[in-house]
Design a protein around this nucleic acid. Structure first.
Lengths: 176, 176
DNA sequence: GCACCCTATGCAACTAGTTGCAGAGGTGGC
DNA sequence: GCCACCTCTGCAACTAGTTGCATAGGGTGC
């Protein structure tokens, strides 16, 4: 389970409240993890119980109070310890892949329409990521350390989208 | 949840018992799903309760009886219905990606060693998949229908491994 | 003043999957 | 005969994540 560690990374960069973190999952953290706000609040509460983060209630003017979480020394150490562990290769699970394999047992035309929507979605995301890369990292070879890591994770997002586009395109063309 | 559907696909091709299916997850079905034998038995039992499959107990000579599952008409229809549903784009969750992003907060050297092991693993799998493709599908352009689908899912496995190799290699070289 | 919307947090029921463990039939080696 | 190993099925406790729903503070428009 890496949600708690993904949250530790995000909070190490900038303390934040729950909903703000959920929003960051729609952007930077979202390249490599995703979570609902319910799940985020649940995990944040547990991290607080474990002493990994502290919460400070901040009053706001036009909205309810928010709880801003900050990583503790214990949390920083927990993150470092986790980074030192070995992560095995993850299995690949994909519902659309099951369907691509199963197409002969159902409505292939409906599946192909679904695939066309998906590949469009992936193309849109790829264009968005590539725009981000060009705008935020005009000179990637000059990057180092944490900033380089952030860029390289964006590169992972780009390559991942490229994979999906290549595969779905190959599938659709092979059946044309 | 697509395990039950992945199992329907596998059983539609060939009736099988639980452990045999678990073994097939280490091979063909394993390109797009994975499951432990405990999970497979659990799901098979539910599919049987739902009328999707029937089980026939077969005695064996040097091993305990096995339950061979066969898809029913109800199961065949359930699979077709499912194929006609729309599958949304799946999120990308990766523990190693979180670590790549978090490397500055821990032991980067240990992570790089982990990444080298992983990329070797991916290269081995890629070579294995490419060997399968060359051996089992010498003339892919002549394939049609279900056989073509099987080949294209293998292609997905190849492209997926290619993605991982490209990304990890880029990460390691950028930090060299 | 009410409906709608936004921010902000969070409970609870449920699901899919993991892990540890277990019983049973049988074979081969010591 | 016992033990290690293989085949074969499966229970149960647990975890991570999903979904539906809820409360609460505040602002805006009709």
């Amino acid at each position: 389970m890496a949600l708690e560690h993904a949250l530790l990374v995000a909070l190490s960069e900038r303390p934040a409240a729950g909903l703000e973190l959920a929003r960051r999952f729609d952007r930077s953290i979202g390249f490599f993890w995703s979570a609902t706000h319910q799940q985020i609040y649940k995990v944040l509460r547990r991290m607080e119980d474990d002493g990994w983060v502290t919460a400070e209630v901040q009053a706001q003017t036009a909205a309810p109070d928010k709880r801003v979480y900050t990583v503790t020394d214990v949390g920083t150490k927990a993150l470092a310890d986790w980074i030192a562990t070995t992560t095995p290769r993850a299995g690949f699970r994909s519902e659309i892949a099951v369907k691509m394999r199963a197409a002969s047992y159902g409505d292939r035309t409906a599946l192909e329409a679904n695939l066309r929507e998906l590949v469009d979605d992936h193309r849109t995301r790829l264009a968005h990521y590539e725009g981000m890369a060009a705008r935020d990292y005009p000179e990637p070879t000059r990057l180092e350390g944490q900033e380089l890591d952030t860029y390289l994770v964006l590169r992972g997002g780009i390559l991942q989208e490229t994979f999906w586009i290549a595969w779905i395109t190959e599938y659709l063309e092979a059946h044309a």
